[in-house]
Design a binder for these strands. Structure first.
Length: 228
DNA sequence: ATCCCGAGGG
DNA sequence: CCCTCTGGAT
């Protein structure tokens, strides 16, 4: 179990050498804001609006005192913009009120912030503070189940199960490569098994949910097919 | 139509 | 467990 998991992990690391956090940021606050905005949209789209947002709002207090309409307009193209604006304003206020305007480098503190769930918290910990964290998004959860690392759906249980298989120092990179793999190859509906570098170790290969032949035809990236 | 590196609320 | 929030790309 552990051996297979690590083999899959290292193979994916080689397959996605560019796997990393793709949100532009210079400090924890910027990453936190960008990550809150990234829900149900793409990093490319978030990076399109953050320059203007970061120029206008530089401190937690700036977000707390933001003009709602102005901020909504700036982040409108990222979707869910009313909920996100609401979160960012409350988030700024909470940072000022409870953490001296700084982003707390602890999971238990981060998840108490408005608009910050466990996934967002671990992104900030891993990429702004260098604290190893597993970010269980929809891709990560799906792949953890396909690889039979766990059948749990509760993100916390998934974290614990996978964390026991992969060394802690690799948790952040593991999150990135699984998410890359989920987006670029092992899609939810039509996984491109014909181009999957870990198909030979995948317990779900050919189980009916996957569609190797047709999925291969949908491949948009130049990946070398691997026969199991 | 379906999906996107979610979170909060019922 | 369910639902809602939203624009943009494919």
């Amino acid at each position: 179990m552990t051996r297979r998991a690590r083999k899959i992990y290292w193979t994916l690391v080689e397959r996605y050498p560019d796997a990393r956090c793709e949100l532009d940021f210079e400090n924890p606050l910027q990453l936190l804001v960008a990550t809150v905005m990234s829900a149900q949209t793409t990093d490319v789209r978030v990076n399109l609006v953050t320059p203007a947002v970061f120029a206008r709002y530089r401190t937690a207090g700036d977000y707390a005192g933001a003009d709602r309409t102005e901020l909504e307009t700036m982040i409108q193209s990222t979707g869910f913009y009313r909920a996100k604006t609401d979160s960012l304003i409350k988030l700024g206020a909470a940072l000022v009120a409870r953490f001296g305007g700084e982003v707390p480098p602890r999971l238990n503190d981060l998840v108490t912030l408005p608009g910050v769930g466990r996934k967002t918290a671990n992104v900030v910990l891993g990429n702004a503070f260098g604290v190893p964290g597993i970010t269980v998004d929809t891709h990560f959860g799906r792949l953890a189940r396909r690889f039979a690392w766990t059948q749990e759906k509760d993100p916390v249980k998934v974290e614990h199960a996978v964390g026991a298989l992969i060394p802690k120092k690799d948790w952040t990179m593991l999150s990135h490569v699984l998410i890359f793999h989920g987006r670029r190859t092992c899609h939810s509906r039509r996984p491109a098994c014909g181009a999957c570098p870990v198909a030979s170790w995948c317990p779900s290969y050919g189980d009916g949910e996957t569609d190797p032949v047709k999925a291969t035809q949908l491949l948009k990236y130049e990946l070398t097919p691997v026969q199991p």
